[in-house]
Design a binder for these strands. Structure first.
Length: 120
RNA sequence: CAGGUAGGGCAAAUGAUCGCGGCCCGUCCCAGACGGGGUGAGGAAAGUCCGGGCUUCACAGGGCAGGAUGCCGGAUAACAUCCGGUGGAGGCAACUCCAAGGAUAGUGCAACAGAAAUAUACCGCCCCGCAGUCCGCUGCGGUGGUAAGGGUGGAAGGGCAGUGUAAGAGACUACCGCCUCUCCGGUAACAGGGAGGGCAUAUGUAAACCCCAUCCGAAGCAAGACCGAACAAAAGCGUUUACGUGGCCCGCCAGCUUUAGGUAGGUCGCUUGAGGUGGCUGGCGACAGUCAUCCUAGACAGAUGAUCAUUCCCCUGCUUUGCAGGGUGACAUAACCCGGCUUAUCGCCCUGCCUGCCAU
């Protein structure tokens, strides 16, 4: 991804959970924390409760793909953690995309104006 | 054709756009970035249940403990796997299934029922004594006999028939079973025959202890090997130019070098291997040998995805040619590598064999 990298260390995850703000909808939960750099860092977490390895991998890929295709719309300098909820077990790409952008709107970290957001 | 049985194979396809991990090549402002090329999950990658390779540690040799295996022979690096047999069970058959050593070394356990459960006399049968008697027998008693009959039980001291006896009993006899010895076929498990023992073993359980035979050192790639900042440590050198302690010197401190140590981090291990495919030879077969040919993922918080279109498949609805709508289109994601086992699985294809029916 051009402007972003992934969040890897457990301590980074913990930091975002403890100090970041969170919003949730039906399928996803998103934590956001400013990291003081130019780049965004994205972490994706899918619990074992959601499903087996195939389902979990598939969900992380869907989330990452949604983020990648809309990377330009997000502001920079953020640590983000996206958690998939069990209800997201068998949703399609388009539903993931819409859920992610909805959360972005709630956090007010997207660059597009609100009128455009409501069309999602 | 129908039903069955055994085995093998596939695991939706094609294209376009965007994207990701290794590899190779090129360019540049060279810890990187960009461009191009090629490559990138499974039959079970799963469970982590066995067996091995590999690595480190331990180890003269022997024993104990503990664990595993358990009909025989073979295959193999090895196995709890596989192949071929033997025995038993099921099926008309093809074929399938079996934890299949020892209960005759010993110990334990066995609900309920039953008189009694490894030992027995409840009823019954018989004998003896006494009493009574309608002379059929009846009643009472016996440190009397008896396991044939009844009843209980999964199991009652081999089975069954006869002889025998007061009634009975391997007490005796035939057949079957068991045990011992022996002959013969087979590498063997075992099969077939003969003789003897009167039976000394005689309910089941060894995935109860146990006995017998054979095998087994431990931990795992987060194994392990190498490089190695920073901080701190030791030794050596050495300026008094700078900070602090001193009136001054030495010394401490500071600086440089070296040394181990091995942290963060990095590199290797890491994919060419008991390897795949095809042919030939040996073998009933598992498999072995040989020749040719191919190189086919190596991530390290972990790449292999998304969208769209067409076809295929499935589902639903209809006018059952077809049309419309719907469907993450089975299970399941490599993590050092192999050989197995077990479990999950939408559909579909191929082959051998058996039984039945029809036709020839």
């Amino acid at each position: 991804m051009k402007y972003s990298e992934s969040l890897k260390k457990n301590s980074d995850f913990k930091n975002v959970y403890r100090n970041g703000k969170s919003y949730a909808n039906r399928y996803l939960v998103m934590y956001v924390l400013e990291n003081g750099t130019e780049r965004n860092r994205l972490g994706i977490s899918v619990s074992k409760k959601v499903g087996n390895s195939v389902i979990r991998h598939h969900l992380t890929r869907l989330v990452r793909e949604s983020y990648r295709l809309h990377e330009d719309m997000f502001q920079s300098g953020l640590d983000m953690v996206v958690i998939a909820r069990t209800t997201a077990k068998d949703i399609s790409y388009h539903e993931v995309e819409s859920a992610l952008l909805h959360l972005g709107g709630l956090h007010k970290i997207t660059k597009i104006d609100k009128k455009k957001m409501e069309s999602f």
